[in-house]
Design a protein around this nucleic acid. Structure first.
Length: 200
DNA sequence: CACGGGATCGTCT
DNA sequence: GACGATCCCGTGT
């Protein structure tokens, strides 16, 4: 496996990156444990024009400033006061694009994932859902604004060099953005049809 | 299985 | 002071 390079993230086609992240591996070191998983579901967010994006209209705040960093940085934020949602920033510096990772398939450290989630069984609910997999892998707000293409980073994304057929990628509208008007139905949610580990 | 509401807190107005 | 890129559990069928 090889680290995805900066050039993977630092261009302006966030939708392509959202598709290309499917099948890649994410590795997290947290609380003294290492966990690894395959990315099976993503969503693209394309500020400034995308009304579903936190950085719509170049909105720049203490929270959203992370999205203006160069591609390859993490963007982690708290949702509904409870869940931590994880994105990878894409595009060049100043271009607020990001890909939300919504579901993963566990590969390594499954036992600690079960412990963190309170699951005795291994089943899709362990990591299928944007707030679920981050809990399973120990991601919290301290993981905001860190680079994921450096070897010593606590969060890295790697290429397992597995070919993903275009026909195995399902595209559908994004979830939970009913305020986003003409952007509601844009099919920028991507899932691997071959995986049982995607969200409902 | 579908639906509805409560949890819980950082962020922005 | 209101509200979320969600989840979980309880209820009813």
């Amino acid at each position: 496996m090889t680290l995805l390079p900066a050039s993977f993230y630092q261009h302006n086609d966030v939708v392509r990156i959202a598709r290309e992240l499917l099948g890649k591996h994410i590795i997290v070191h947290a609380e003294g444990y290492s966990t690894g998983a395959i990315i099976v579901e993503t969503e693209a967010y394309k500020g400034p024009e995308d009304k579903a994006c936190h950085a719509y209209n170049n909105k720049y705040t203490e929270r959203t400033k992370t999205m203006f960093l160069p591609g390859g940085y993490t963007y982690v934020y708290l949702c509904y006061g409870i869940h931590r949602l994880f994105n990878v920033v894409t595009g060049d510096e100043g271009c607020p694009h990001a890909v939300l990772i919504r579901a993963v398939e566990p590969i390594k450290g499954i036992e600690i994932m079960q412990t963190r989630r309170g699951f005795s069984a291994v089943k899709p609910a362990l990591t299928a859902g944007p707030g679920r997999w981050t809990q399973a892998m120990g991601i919290d707000l301290h993981h905001n604004s860190i680079l994921c293409y450096e070897h010593n980073s606590p969060i890295t994304i790697k290429d397992a060099h597995v070919k993903i057929n275009k026909s195995s990628i399902l595209a559908s509208p994004r979830v939970g953005i009913n305020y986003a008007e003409e952007w509601i139905d844009v099919p920028w949610r991507f899932r691997l049809a071959t995986s049982n580990w995607t969200s409902k």
